[in-house]
Simulated assay, not measured.
Amino acid sequence: MATPSNTASADIAPVMSDSDARSLGRHLGNVIRQIRLQHGLTIADISERASISRGMLSKIENGLVSTSLETLEQIANALGVTLSRLFRDYNIQTSSAQLVKHGQGMEVVRRGTKRGHTYHLLAYDQGPKKTFEPFLITLEDPGEEFPPFEHSGTEFIHMLEGEVEYKVGNETFLLQPGDSLTFRGEQPHRPERLVSAPVKFLSIIHHDFPDTPEE
């Protein structure tokens, strides 16, 4: 693995002013932090996977340093996304509304999920402190065993298709199309059994506001 660099890559530096470089650095840092937190990963997790120091990753996330495209690619690989994902929404006109067309939500992977267990994020790029995350979740394998999930905030589930027994704490609920379930995310929760597959539901997580990102 190549040694990370603190200087901007020669591929982009000649065509960028200092202010543009700082703006891009802040954007990249926010996107990296956002994706990391969405995946439930710490700075230590990503720095180990990307073979860079925790201190350097923290500086990158806070837009304090520029870095090479090679290092950004290592970070993107550690996050499980493409390099282009980090740049996707840079320098576009902002709007008071965000439209995600059918089938175009960003696909993300959570620790413990397997093939046939898909999350599509339906709204994103809301900055390092997000108020909510809406996911469209599809479960296709009736034989999959799901690990329990725990997270801060409140989760709201609305069933769209199929039937699933969903466990929250010590209770199990049969969810059918049109049913809704709300619970605190700190309780262990998971799909217990797919009664009728495929299962598709909306999961909206309302976040609390931590003072600082988890490191």
Rank of each mutant, 00 (worst) to 15 (best):
G143E: 15
H207S: 07
V81T: 14
A21K: 15
E165W: 10
L86H: 07
L194V: 12
H27T: 01
R26D: 08
Y90M: 11
A44Q: 07
G116E: 08
L28M: 07
M56Y: 12
V164G: 00
A44W: 02
E133Y: 03
L37E: 13
S84V: 10
P147V: 14
K130M: 13
T212Q: 11
K167M: 14
Q104Y: 09
S68E: 03
V81M: 08
E155P: 00
L202G: 04
Q74C: 13
L79F: 09
E133N: 14
R85K: 13
A50L: 08
D208F: 06
G105P: 06
N62P: 00
Q176H: 06
I12Y: 15
P210R: 07
S17L: 05
L202I: 15
L121H: 10
P198T: 13
F209V: 12
G143P: 02
T71L: 01
I75G: 05
T113L: 11
P198R: 10
P198I: 12
G127Q: 09
R85Q: 11
G127S: 10
A123W: 00
P198Q: 11
Y119V: 00
S23H: 14
G112D: 03
S51R: 14
P177Y: 08
S203M: 14
G162H: 02
T113P: 13
L160E: 13
H102T: 11
L202W: 11
